[in-house]
């Protein structure tokens, strides 16, 4: 298997199937958090970490626990528990190891549990059947790569959006459209732009 597979997986998850704009995952933090560029980057960092580790863990659990015992139908409940405990562990770990990092990321971690992008990407990884296509171990690499790409896409979009919103706050908008409504229109236009990337890979 050539390394291009990983590269393609990253690019495709980041731009062509952008989690927020084209797959509608993680819209809540996208609308709620991204008012300032720094916050957006902090959130992006936290999501990237949890998404990649969470995807790897859920993938392993799916193929080494759920599938051998033929209980894949409980994947949802297993995945959400794994992600929730992972977030808890990461929070405790960061708190112990680095106060600075905890200050930067800590406040976003609890929000991540309810970020559907994490669970969504974990579910997509097993649904896409990477393991069937590339074998379980190589599939794990592809799954991790596409989780990483998805997280990058998430970060890219919330960062770009926060920059737009900083400008938007200064713009003159009719009262009814102020805040979320105009943000959604902007997001719609961004989605149109991303639609133009279709067919690259």
């Amino acid at each position: 298997m050539s390394p291009t597979v990983f590269f393609v997986a990253i690019i495709s998850a980041m731009l062509i199937n952008n989690v927020v704009l084209l797959r509608f995952l993680g819209v809540c933090p996208f609308l709620g958090v991204s008012k300032r560029s720094e916050t957006a980057l902090g959130m992006g960092g936290a999501v990237t970490f949890v998404m990649v580790v969470g995807s790897v863990l859920t993938y392993l659990i799916y193929y080494y626990v759920l599938e051998p015992f033929d209980i894949t139908y409980i994947s949802t409940i297993a995945f959400i528990l794994v992600i929730a405990s992972l977030v808890q562990l990461v929070e405790m770990f960061i708190k112990k190891v680095s106060k600075k990092l905890y200050k930067a990321l800590g406040i976003y971690l609890p929000l991540i549990v309810t970020n559907c992008a994490i669970l969504g990407v974990a579910e997509t990884n097993v649904r896409e059947g990477y393991a069937e296509e590339f074998g379980i171990m190589s599939g794990l690499g592809v799954a991790a790569a596409s989780a990483f790409g998805a997280a990058l896409g998430f970060t890219l979009v919330i960062f770009a959006f926060s920059s737009i919103r900083e400008r938007l706050d200064a713009a003159e908008v009719p009262n009814a459209w102020k805040g979320i409504p105009i943000s959604l229109i902007v997001a719609g236009i961004m989605a149109l732009a991303f639609l133009g990337l279709e067919g690259i890979v």
């Binding site: 704009l21 084209l22 509608f24 459209w177 979320i180 409504p181 105009i182 229109i185 719609g188 989605a191």
Partner: peptide, 14 residues
């Protein structure tokens, strides 16, 4: 498509 979703919700919210 995806863009339409954002725009329609934005419209109704407004």
């Amino acid at each position: 498509g995806p863009a339409g979703g954002f725009i329609v919700i934005g419209f109704w919210l407004a």
